[in-house]
Amino acid sequence: MANIMVGKNAAGAYSFYLPKRDLEDAIVTMEFDSTDKWGGEIRLNNGGVYYIEPQALPARFPISLRARRVDAAE
């Protein structure tokens, strides 16, 4: 499990930040993106895949979350 921060940029796209790795990247796809179910598998621009436990849409961004690494790009 890794602590990550999910943010939203001015254009409304999700961004991903992993402090331990200094990894800043755009989130390309997010499995669930609705008000009541949000999260799931997220795919990054660099090809990495992380999993966030599906939850209600956070009230505001950025938000710190726990995520599981499914497949990192390294």
């Binding site: 921060m5 943010g7 930040y17 402090p19 505001r60 950025p62 938000i63 710190s64």
Partner: peptide
Amino acid sequence: YISRHMEEKYG
């Protein structure tokens, strides 16, 4: 680090 923290906690 502190800027990111303030972004999250205080918006």
